[in-house]
Design a protein around this nucleic acid. Sequence first.
DNA 1: CCTAAATAGGACCAATGGGGTCCCCTTTGA
DNA 2: TCAAAGGGGACCCCATTGGTCCTATTTAGG
Lengths: 154, 154
Amino acid sequence: MVLRLSKLTDYAVVVMARLARDGALPEGRVQTAPGLAQATGIAEPTVAKVLKILGQAGLVEGLRGARGGYRLTRPLAAVPLSEVIVAVDGPIALTACVDGGQGQCEAQSICAVRGRWDPVNDAIRRALSDITLADLAGPARCGSAPVFAQLVAE
Amino acid sequence: MVLRLSKLTDYAVVVMARLARDGALPEGRVQTAPGLAQATGIAEPTVAKVLKILGQAGLVEGLRGARGGYRLTRPLAAVPLSEVIVAVDGPIALTACVDGGQGQCEAQSICAVRGRWDPVNDAIRRALSDITLADLAGPARCGSAPVFAQLVAE
DNA sequence: CCTAAATAGGACCAATGGGGTCCCCTTTGA
DNA sequence: TCAAAGGGGACCCCATTGGTCCTATTTAGG
């Protein structure tokens, strides 16, 4: 399967959806990484890793020390999916030799499609920017997963 | 980098662009895998592999025997990029637990975003379907690769 | 009829990169 | 002063993919 979103990004969306339960800055209460791990079913070290990455990107805020934890810096509706993807997986592009492509492509002198992927990349970035985490975690609609309500709607 | 298009798909586009030089069915002349390998700079076994895959998908036609070779079944303008991607890399989807997702997701009972990726996937598929190989290999515009003209425009 | 050239199909090996874990340090409330 | 929690990074493992090769089949040409 192509266009494989990394698992880390998937986890990031789930974790942020769970974080949304307790709100965002400045009133939002924090949740700890172990707590989020238990709530989401994702292994604790992995949740911690995801939260660190999201923290560096400014998507969540971490409060250190006892009684510390994480909370969103923005409501889900203000977070485009593309931003999460970029934070976790890096730039959104279809090939390595794309967008300027100063990185050396061994077949550079003979490559027939060099520099032509830009419109494709732009289209995909636009699609991913138009969708926010609120769209993904939004109003309950999940036939097979009743727990969904506990995680997000509640 | 996310959304990484496989190298095989990249090769497929290059090879098909080269195949377009000699036309498509029914008048088009065939080109051999070794010849295409030399013309594109891609290793011969790899070119052969790509052509086999494209043949199974019906994007190229292979003629066996001496004086055999490959030719396009359609002009480049009639081949959406999405079709090449699907042929080489399989279905276009962002996550494994997507689009029905009967495949067992270990966190299925607790996953907050189950079934919500469909609009994202649809948007991406649409973007990839709106672009044809002719758009990629189209009129010459390649500052750093003059050989491009020999491959496609000539 | 025989040979050479070419595709068809699949098996096989190697390497890259990402998933996942763990360690140590810093911070901070009780 | 201690315990709880985040911050940052190093590390290993393995699944996926890129790439190669081998064999069978087909067909033009002498």
